[in-house]
């Protein structure tokens, strides 16, 4: 009886997404056909480019890394009842710190460089998260304002560094010099171009799960997020827990920035995060604030981004049309989430 109900419950979770995927594919085919492309070729190309080939899979994994780390950052905040919409700024702050560390560490022993660079990224993001964290814990300032404003600060900081002191004079655009080779992440799967960042992200997912569900801190954080006044009466230091969560959340986002620098771009660039922070919120919601469910959700998202990008090459869609396709698929997915929640 109970298992039956549980199985039914599971189906109720699955079918809206299955339906959404079907609707999304049909809409995608229709859009491609409308824009003058060959729909079947487009769909085949999409699958091949994201999951069906080594190189495609590699790209998908590389894209998964910042999305997963970012969504873990959002999840950690949401579980404590705070809405971190500053993931983008924290990614940039982490990227800046990682790049700076890579530039400064040229005399350090080679084996130490990469760990320090990654830790610097983590610390940079944590600093960016600590400001809203402290303001919220001490003064009750809404984290939403502070995190959004710090996004701008971080973007302008990157702009300054990449066009100013760290600028690569030979490039002629807003990018910095390349970081030294010992500061770069090794390849996990060289032929596919997949770097080892995905391992860090997966470890982080397990780590966040452990923190939330297997530590007293995580228990108190979830209690504070669920009902702060009951948690307080139960002896939970609510403000402190929430503040710490924002700092840790920033650290995860900062790690994403460091991975993007040392695994993918090898330098700091403007546009390092094409809105990962916003997508991370969507992933966090789709995965129902669960760090392990965030893994497939982030991967699916990455596959969608990589696959639709390929439509430019496979059927010659203009890049703006690709954005339209991405947006339509996203809306259908979100509608499915709405249906799932509304389901009795």
């Amino acid at each position: 009886m109970t298992t039956e109900a549980a199985a039914r419950g599971r189906w109720q979770v699955v079918w809206p997404y299955a339906g959404a995927l079907a609707i999304a594919l049909v809409l995608l085919a229709a859009l491609v056909a409308m824009l003058g492309g060959d729909a079947s070729q487009a769909l085949a190309g999409l699958v091949r480019a994201s999951l069906g080939s080594g190189a495609g899979l590699g790209q998908t994994l590389n894209k998964t890394t910042p999305l997963l780390l970012g969504s873990l950052a959002v999840i950690l905040g949401l579980r404590g009842g705070v809405f971190n919409i500053g993931v983008d700024g924290q990614i940039y702050a982490g990227a800046v710190a990682a790049t700076g560390a890579a530039f400064l560490l040229w005399t350090a022993p080679k084996a130490a460089v990469l760990p320090v660079v990654l830790l610097a990224g983590l610390a940079g993001g944590a600093v960016w998260g600590s400001l809203p964290g402290v303001l919220r814990a001490r003064l009750g300032v809404s984290e939403i304002f502070v995190t959004v404003m710090l996004n701008f600060v971080a973007v302008f900081l990157v702009e300054y560094l990449s066009t100013g002191p760290w600028n690569d004079p030979t490039a002629g655009e807003a990018i910095t010099r390349a970081i030294p080779p010992e500061a770069t992440l090794p390849y996990l799967w060289p032929r596919a171009g997949a770097h080892a960042g995905i391992l860090l992200a997966l470890a982080a997912a397990v780590g966040v799960w452990w923190l939330l569900f297997r530590t007293v801190f995580g228990y108190e954080l979830r209690a504070a997020g669920d009902n702060p006044s009951a948690a307080l009466l139960g002896g939970v230091p609510v403000r402190r827990a929430v503040g710490v969560a924002l700092v840790a959340s920033g650290g995860l986002a900062g790690l994403a920035g460091a991975v993007e620098v040392s695994g993918f771009h090898y330098r700091l660039i403007l546009g390092l995060s094409p809105g990962y922070g916003m997508m991370a919120i969507l992933i966090a919601v789709l995965s129902r604030r669960h760090p392990v469910l965030a893994v497939p959700a982030a991967m699916g998202f990455a596959a969608l981004l990589v696959g639709t990008d390929s439509l430019q090459r496979s059927v010659g869609l203009p890049s703006s049309a690709v954005f339209v396709v991405q947006a339509v698929v996203l809306l259908v997915l979100l509608a499915a989430e709405g249906v799932r929640r509304g389901a009795p």
């Binding site: 569900f213 297997r214 530590t215 007293v216 801190f217 995580g218 228990y219 108190e220 979830r222 209690a223 669920d226 009902n227 009951a230 948690a231 009466l233 139960g234 002896g235 939970v236």
Partner: peptide
């Protein structure tokens, strides 16, 4: 008094969780 979205088990230990879990692990 209640953490509505958390389980009965998680609610039962609220307030004495530090007693049952004096270390890091829950």
């Amino acid at each position: 008094g209640i953490l509505p979205r958390m389980s009965v088990a998680e609610n039962v230990v609220l307030g004495r969780h530090r007693l049952y879990f004096p270390g890091v692990r829950y």
